[in-house]
């Protein structure tokens, strides 16, 4: 049976950015913090701020790879009983409101496993996702998910860490979409220094990968984004944005529409300010 290959939107966006000499800005947000409808509005705000694609984070009870900021966001979302399928639906709702950029789901493995991997990837496809990141599913365990992702036209985006060493080549060789380079040892969260071998690490990944490479974990300012802009194709900003959302919660949860709009505008401005200036090379 032959199928028509539709180009994945992630690949298309990276190709366009490369042609313009730009680095992708990829925000991360925890879905359902403070509620699903606000999440859809925040996704719109991110695009308006100039984000090129976005990671939609699924709250989880035991987020091993996350620091305190995203842990707190997850706890808030789980108090609202936000489910995996709720999070997935944010993509199609945002699309319906005119959002164009590619969607990437960020979820720990167990919620997807309990939903059933077939169903999970089917829903990702139906709701307009282009990629998925599963932080606790290393290469050794991802065979089934990788096959299903491919069958559904979804990129399973792998992580590599400064400690990956010899694994970098194997991971990068199979990567789809982009390689997510973890900037430092540790969990997600704002930090002032990166792993000392970060530059050598990024060039190793660059040499091994045939897809774009992006840097995440600890990136919280335009200075950080620009520091990496020349070495990679995109920067991922998570905790710093989730913390902005946390600080804007009184506004975002306000019943007064003007107040709420102020909250969204504050987050939007923060994201806009992260955007690295184009490298003119």
């Amino acid at each position: 049976m032959s199928t028509v290959t539709v180009p994945n939107a992630i690949d298309t966006v990276f190709a366009e950015l490369k042609a313009r000499g730009e680095t992708a800005l990829i925000p991360f947000m925890t879905m359902g913090d403070p509620d699903l409808d606000t999440s859809v509005s925040l996704v719109q705000a991110a695009e308006a701020a100039g984000a090129h694609m976005i990671e939609l984070g699924v709250p989880y009870s035991d987020p091993l790879a996350d620091g305190p900021v995203i842990q707190r966001a997850s706890e808030r979302a789980l108090k609202n009983r936000i489910s995996l399928t709720d999070c997935i639906s944010v993509a199609s709702k945002a699309r319906a409101r005119g959002v164009q950029m590619p969607f990437i789901l960020f979820s720990y493995f167990n919620p997807a496993l309990q939903l059933g991997l077939e169903t999970f990837f089917g829903l990702l496809k139906d709701n307009g996702f282009s990629g998925v990141i599963i932080p606790d599913l290393p290469l050794e365990e991802d065979a089934e998910a990788r096959a299903l992702a491919e069958a559904h036209g979804i990129h399973l985006i792998p992580l590599v860490a400064p400690t990956s060493e010899a694994r970098v080549e194997r991971i990068a060789a199979q990567a789809k979409g982009f390689v997510y380079c973890v900037s430092s040892l540790g969990v997600t969260g704002v930090r002032s220094t990166f792993h000392e071998g970060i530059d050598a690490f990024l060039s190793t990944v660059r040499r091994s990968a045939s897809v774009p490479i992006c840097v995440g974990f600890g990136i919280s300012s335009r200075e950080h984004a620009e520091r990496f802009a020349g070495q990679c194709d995109g920067v991922i900003v998570g905790s710093a944005i989730v913390r902005q959302v946390e600080e804007a919660l009184p506004l975002l949860t306000s019943s007064d529409a003007t107040e709420k709009a102020r909250g969204l505008a504050a987050v939007q401005q923060f994201i806009a300010d992260l955007k690295p200036r184009a490298t003119h090379s």
């Binding site: 091993l64 932080p135 606790d136 290469l139 792998p158 992580l159 590599v160 860490a161 400690t163 991971i171």
Partner: peptide, 8 residues
């Protein structure tokens, strides 16, 4: 089933 950072 752990983050890549721990695999090695």
């Amino acid at each position: 089933y752990v983050p890549e950072t721990l695999m090695n």
